[in-house]
Design a protein around this nucleic acid. Structure first.
Lengths: 349, 349
DNA sequence: AGAAACTATTTGATCGATCAAATAAAGTCA
DNA sequence: TGACTTTATTTGATCGATCAAATAGTTTCT
């Protein structure tokens, strides 16, 4: 294969200068129509493609976003990040952006990687996932004026409306509020909740959705509300145990909501009465066994992240005060309702 | 933040020339020890990082590998590719390689993307996953002399030992052979198999592993061997149905092996006798519910892929006949044995 | 018609690194 | 010692694109 043609080759073929060729690609508006057509024909004929590195060197833009690939913390729910990554890559591509992966062993190590990629001009900005309270990464990125957007709101003491920290997140509260309402509308009164210990902020958020909806309706007493809640760490076996616990303590249930699909899967195993169970994340497992679940619309999240990010490195420097756009975005999740069809429980007996 | 220092800045600080600085980074051997130390000190002191794009422009190497992010064809087993991607990124990083993602809607579209990334000098080579019979992608890559390695052997008419097609794959036959042997060693005689229709080559391979091991041992008659096999497309509900079918047709079973974890999960649902079930892929679901499974050692696969790929664009041009290294690598999977502890079946009754 | 104001296109310089070849320094040997 | 290697370092050119400023070509208006 002969080496790739360059702008000069195209310019020669079209009878114009290098810069005009460049203009046709980057600001077609300023080139006269007939000239543009001639250049475009030459580009097509020679099969010209701009050399990405040359362009990046000159423009000081890499058109690349860095994102850390997590080591599947929680097995089952890992697929959410996976889907997010896919959506991000797909949508980034449409805007001419590439997605570069990296891994890290700890938040501190991640900062080293962030610095490496940024200093080497490998990326224009980062997308961070799984934010947590006191996250050192966001602090570091802000201090170093590096563009980034997080999938996950600032937790704990960090300010949700800090103009320097752009974020997109899914409204876990709304997800569970809606799921609770849906169950109530279907006639359920005694709706249980299996959630995580309150050290995890994201779990508290979801729990409140259920709790608020239950209180608003007032179908059960305060004492019952306490009995209807089980707390456990994530996991299938844990979900099973929590479900047994719940049935023992709360008596008959009309429905059960869970903070994750893992818990929901577990709950469903100890569920002979076939009480409707709803999970969270709408993972493949939920789809496979016919479990209702709250779906984090990763497509919308990806779009939001990209919007904020390109606004960031497209426009002014980081944290420019004059930008009046919203600095964050809360996405409303979507409840996916499924019947229990996939598990013919009667066969088990 | 002041703009990043360049080689020239470092050279000035260390009192040497640009090229010496470059040599310290790329061929330290040819620089005198004391000079090297001086330069290294200057690099550290200034916090210098080479500009990736500048280097790539000059060297005509991107040190980047392109890989397509699949849209989770099969929900549950998608995590295998996910784990592979993670291992690949991690190991690539150690060799100074980056991993760039892309998406595509079809094999034809994928070829367009491959061309785009290659022509733009964005990547040095590709890693392809999920190969299939008559795969147009490998054909195209070979024709265009672009470096690539596939995770998955050439299927169908494609030649497994074609020196132009480098590949790494997991030996599904060995995986099921071993799983069968393990069951036999544990005293099982009547071992059932739930597999896929024979249109999928990868499924046939796994089935043969079970079939060969059963025949070698000769514990059951040929007629029984036929009764011990159920065929169905992938899915949890399908696994449940196949399991019922198997129990009806084959009578009592000592163990059941499945072509996937989805099928295994399904099989376990219709398994009141608690016959040991073994899946394939060792997905998080298997881990969560305590299912034995055949693990595709993605770490080894990633290492193999990288070895072949760097050998490819590190050394001679594609398909150079003088290379005597093996052109492919078959990885032996590993059987992960788990007890059924996670599912307390008695609770269901 | 001629100056002013645009619009379209070209030219020279530059981004930050490495290559290739030239030079300088050090070591070897008759 | 002087010619000859070998080793270490420097210099000028270059990768392929875009930027900034200069030039050529058009249109507008008095």
């Amino acid at each position: 294969m002969a080496s790739m043609p360059t702008v000069t080759d195209v310019a020669l073929a079209a009878g114009v200068s290098r810069q005009t060729v460049s203009n046709v690609m980057n600001s077609p508006g300023i080139v006269r129509a007939d000239t543009r057509e001639r250049v475009e024909a030459a580009i097509a004929q020679l099969g010209y493609r701009p050399h990405a590195s040359a362009r990046r060197l000159r423009t000081r833009r890499s058109s690349t976003i860095g994102i850390r690939l997590d080591p599947m913390i929680d097995g089952i729910s890992g697929s959410v990040l996976d889907r997010f990554l896919h959506a991000l890559t797909e949508q980034a591509d449409k805007q001419g952006l590439r997605v570069l992966l990296f891994t890290a062993t700890s938040p501190e190590d991640e900062i080293i990687q962030l610095q490496r990629l940024n200093d080497g001009a490998d990326v224009d900005g980062f997308v961070l996932t799984s934010t947590f309270a006191g996250d050192p990464r966001t602090k570091w990125l802000i201090e170093n004026k590096i563009a980034f957007v997080t999938f996950g709101r600032p937790w704990g003491a960090d300010d949700v409306s800090d103009p320097q920290h752009l974020w997109v997140d899914v409204d876990g509260w709304a997800g569970l509020y809606e799921a609770t309402r849906a169950a109530q509308d279907a006639g359920a009164r005694r709706i249980g909740y299996i959630g995580w210990p309150s050290s995890a902020d994201t779990g508290d958020d979801r729990r409140r959705g259920w709790h608020d909806a239950m209180r608003e309706r007032g179908d059960v007493t305060e004492a019952d509300l306490i009995a209807l809640e089980a707390v456990t760490v994530d996991g299938v076996a844990e979900g099973t145990a929590a479900m047994q616990d719940l049935r023992r303590r709360a008596g008959p249930l009309d429905a059960v909501l869970c903070a994750s699909d893992s818990l929901a899967l577990g709950a469903m195993i100890a569920n002979p009465e076939r009480v409707p169970v709803t999970g969270y994340d709408n993972t493949p497992v939920a789809a496979a066994i016919g479990l209702s679940s709250v779906d984090q619309s990763v497509g919308e999240v990806a779009a939001g992240v990209l919007g904020l990010l390109t606004g960031e490195f497209g426009g002014q420097v980081h944290g420019a005060p004059e930008s009046l756009q919203p600095r964050y975005q809360m996405i409303r999740p979507r409840l996916v309702t499924r019947a229990f069809a996939a598990i013919p429980m009667e066969m088990l007996v």
